[in-house]
Design a binder for these strands. Structure first.
Lengths: 154, 154
DNA sequence: TAAACTGATACTATATTAGTATCAATTAAA
DNA sequence: TTTAATTGATACTAATATAGTATCAGTTTA
């Protein structure tokens, strides 16, 4: 059972990079290189995020992608929805012809309840929060700083 | 994003049928027919559940599958683990070579937290609970009884 | 001994996920 | 004004997971 697929995962990394450099343009290439994301794959993800107004872009030399939005306004729930689709509940356990009152489907009911819990939890996890956590983590133990430190705290 | 795949879904239905007739043998064929589950598919699921000691079987004429366990001791979490594998957290966001302290991976941390929430919630959902809910539902509104009523409350 | 069963396992089909490639259009800078 | 660095759009391939089918051997009861 995979919670996040690669595209959601990559999208989050890219957004963290953009959030850390909010206001300036980063090229797909630089993000791909620095964060070990397949270049062409990343480009598709970035374009998808533009369509959803999470980021903006500028074409041509010195162009790239930029975050304009408040990073706290972008939640993992949104990204999951964009890249993995809405959480799907399995079909009514009873034959459709007979059971047209889906609300009564007990399993469905349970899953929907849990789905809501998950959604609420992932909603709390925003790009802004992740970025702050990351910055704290990098400060607390600078001796084992990772490659991201240079990128996110230049 | 699919929470339950067909095999988990079918497995739950089959277990509900077995729990409702606890102590007696039901053939894969009868379960498949009554619950609209592809026969050969179901057989594989039943065998898998035997391997995990959730049910027992008897070969030959009048044979079939039986639930011996307490239905409250079988949770949806267990079934998800059997049929969909343990909840997988996406890899560390930072390069493995550099970041060997995975605990610091902020996203990973968040996902693990949420994963635990999901696991706890699905643990509360046992076959026993589902069966009781189902029986209540069938009693409360008998006028729109579904096909399961005959099976589960004969 | 025949029919109703499970055990085991191999196979096919479909869908999803992951990743690659290409070409046109745009823009900054040489 | 040309070139190189960039995005936009989209088509393609590969790998993996999910869903479903088929088959044959062995067991048991009538």
């Amino acid at each position: 059972m995979k919670v996040l697929t690669k595209n959601t995962d990559y999208a989050i990394r890219a957004l963290l990079a953009l959030a850390a450099k909010k206001g300036s343009y980063l090229s797909a290439k630089s993000i791909a290189t620095e964060h070990d994301i397949p270049y062409q794959f990343l480009r598709r993800l970035l374009q998808e995020m533009i369509r959803h107004n999470l980021i903006v872009s500028k074409e041509g030399v010195q162009g790239g992608f930029m975050m304009e939005k408040d990073p706290d306004a972008i939640s993992v729930t949104q990204l999951i929805e964009i890249f993995q689709g809405k959480v799907q509940v399995s079909e009514c356990m009873f034959r459709k012809q007979i059971c047209n009152n889906r609300a009564r489907c007990v399993l469905r009911h349970e899953i929907m309840r849990i789905e809501q819990v998950v959604q609420r939890e992932f909603e709390k996890v925003t790009i802004g929060k992740l970025l702050r956590d990351l910055q704290v983590a990098n400060k607390v133990e600078p001796q084992s700083a990772n490659i991201e430190q240079a990128v996110l705290n230049p």
